[in-house]
Design a binder for these strands. Structure first.
Length: 219
DNA sequence: GACCAGGCACATC
DNA sequence: GATGTGCATGGT
């Protein structure tokens, strides 16, 4: 892969879509909860669930730790998979208390290299959710890979379609400067592109980016 | 009414 | 280790 390809694609995407303003959330804890709720789910549904949690004033680590799981499930119902996600949120909050006394600021102080494996060990926290929390809630320079990233960048020939998560992540992190704001914006732009184009035309090979790559003869 | 959405754990081979 | 399946609501 050409050295600055991914940086150039970023610039192209940013020019096309502009800043995305991610992650929508009023606090790091809200972002963390949103990261679980949005698993395989449209964000509009997550918003309804978060509204419910706010209305009941239980969107804090202590309140979520104490609430009965059946009530939590009922409140997050609009986000789908509500029984599964209620359990996952409980695990995550339990972890937050066991390791950091329920304090995200403590969690934030830990180094990525020790924090990431620990977080991945929590039930219901896979690589994407983990990295979303690290980047968007804790402001760690970690690149988030999701289904869109894999689909888009395999279609334009940057990676194979079945490339493992960490491998694709490394492609980005080795090619780009380690910047929280850059990773934040880039991932959001990829999701925007995925929503705009990939769904409407399954055969679309990345459209503007592919053209860009072709013109630049990048491979 | 089918299809999809900002995944993950678990069973089975 | 690869592959399949359950989990569920709400928008297009």
């Amino acid at each position: 892969m050409r050295k600055d390809l991914l940086a150039r694609i970023y610039k192209r995407l940013f020019k096309t879509f502009g800043p995305r303003g991610w992650w929508p959330g009023q606090s790091p804890f809200e972002v963390m909860v949103g990261a679980v709720l949005t698993q395989n789910t449209a964000w509009t549904n997550v918003e309804k669930a978060i509204r419910n949690l706010k209305r009941e004033k239980i969107l804090t680590p202590a309140r979520l730790d104490n609430i009965k799981i059946s009530r939590l499930a009922r409140l997050i119902r609009p986000a789908g998979y509500f029984n599964v996600k209620a359990k996952r949120l409980k695990s995550l909050v339990g972890f937050l208390f066991e390791e950091y006394k329920g304090d995200l600021r403590r969690m934030r102080k830990e180094r990525i290299n020790t924090l990431r494996p620990k977080l991945l060990g929590v039930h219901g926290i896979g690589p994407e959710t983990c990295d979303s929390i690290l980047l968007y809630a804790l402001e760690k320079p970690v690149f988030v890979i999701d289904a869109y990233t894999k689909r888009i960048f395999s279609r334009c020939g940057v990676a194979k379609e079945d490339i493992p998560y960490e491998e694709l992540q490394s492609l980005f992190m080795e090619d780009l400067p380690k910047s929280v704001s850059l990773y934040n914006e880039y991932h959001a732009l990829i999701v925007q592109l995925g929503k705009d184009i990939c769904r409407k035309d399954p055969k679309c090979g990345l459209c503007c980016i592919r053209e860009f790559c072709k013109n630049k003869n990048f491979r």
